[in-house]
């Protein structure tokens, strides 16, 4: 009995975490009349999924929102990796004056919330006439101190002797960094990619500030505009839309789950 107790506790925790998702999916297949029924019975009185999903898919350009989400998330991830990997490599493996101070700054920067920077960033982007662009949605996230920190922790465990062997063989530092060290840390790259993509796919705060054009809206902002303009209080269709935009993230996580967990446990983060 004793060894089941942890599992029971974990299952209870998982149930709490999964309940909103369950509720979302349940609502997405219910009729408007049944929406406010507090019963969590999985079979609705009348299956309304086709109508709800149909409405979500046709009344708003959901494909457009998703495409926007893909563009923004992949743009952010690409530049984040491009900048964080060399920085992390330098902090983890190169000896230079000021390394400790730079590392301390990275950790300090982890403590600065996005919200604190929102106003100056908004003003800057507005001055540069860049509001309502993909660039405005991506730019504040190009430099990720979290990525630098995560990769640095992971790179530190890469054997120094292999790096030295590579130097003697004539590898450049960039080749060592990308071709050897990052290659040895693919789980942490997978872990970071999931963190980053999920965070920015789901982000509503920043797109709301810099985007007002529906054609540029990422999924959550699109859903918000959708609930306002088109459907009013049609929660069934709204939840159908939410289910559709959440699905890619869930698929993405399930596919990379093993690497994600390896990446987190390996680096000692969390």
């Amino acid at each position: 009995m004793r060894r089941f107790i942890p599992h029971i506790l974990l299952a209870a925790g998982a149930a709490v975490m999964l309940l909103p998702f369950y509720w979302m999916i349940l609502t997405s297949i219910r009729t408007p009349a049944e929406i406010f029924d507090i019963s969590l019975w999985p079979v609705p009185d009348r299956f309304n999924g086709v109508e709800n999903y149909g409405q979500a898919a046709t009344s708003v350009p959901i494909a457009r929102f998703m495409l926007n989400g893909v563009i923004v998330c992949s743009g952010i991830l690409f530049v984040q990796v491009l900048t964080a990997v060399p920085a992390a490599y330098a902090l983890a493996k190169l000896r230079f004056p000021g390394r400790r101070i730079l590392m301390a700054l990275v950790i300090a920067a982890l403590c600065v919330p996005m919200q604190a920077l929102a106003l100056p960033l908004f003003v800057g982007l507005a001055q540069a006439n860049l509001l309502n662009t993909y660039f405005a949605q991506m730019a504040p996230f190009f430099l990720s101190v979290f990525a630098i920190f995560l990769f640095r922790q992971s790179f530190r465990s890469y054997p120094d002797e292999i790096i030295e062997a590579a130097r003697m063989d004539g590898f450049s530092e960039m080749e060592i960094c990308w071709g050897l060290v990052l290659r040895g840390s693919l789980p942490s790259l997978a872990a970071f990619a999931i963190f980053s993509v999920v965070a920015h796919w789901n982000d509503l705060y920043w797109p709301m500030i810099v985007v007002s054009d529906t054609a540029l809206a990422p999924p959550p902002l699109g859903m918000l505009l959708f609930s306002d303009a088109e459907t009013g209080a049609n929660y069934g269709a709204l939840m159908a839309g939410a289910t559709m935009i959440t699905a890619p993230m869930i698929v993405c996580f399930v596919l990379a789950r093993r690497h994600f967990i390896a990446g987190i446990t390996m680096t000692g983060v969390k």
């Binding site: 054997p159 002797e161 292999i162 030295e164 062997a165 130097r167 003697m168 063989d169 050897l180």
Partner: peptide, 20 residues
């Protein structure tokens, strides 16, 4: 000179083979 320009070969204690 850089290590690679000295034309020396080194065998390390951990062998330092490229793992991938």
């Amino acid at each position: 000179l850089d290590p690679s320009d000295r034309n020396l070969a080194m065998v390390f204690q951990s062998y330092a083979l490229y793992p991938h």
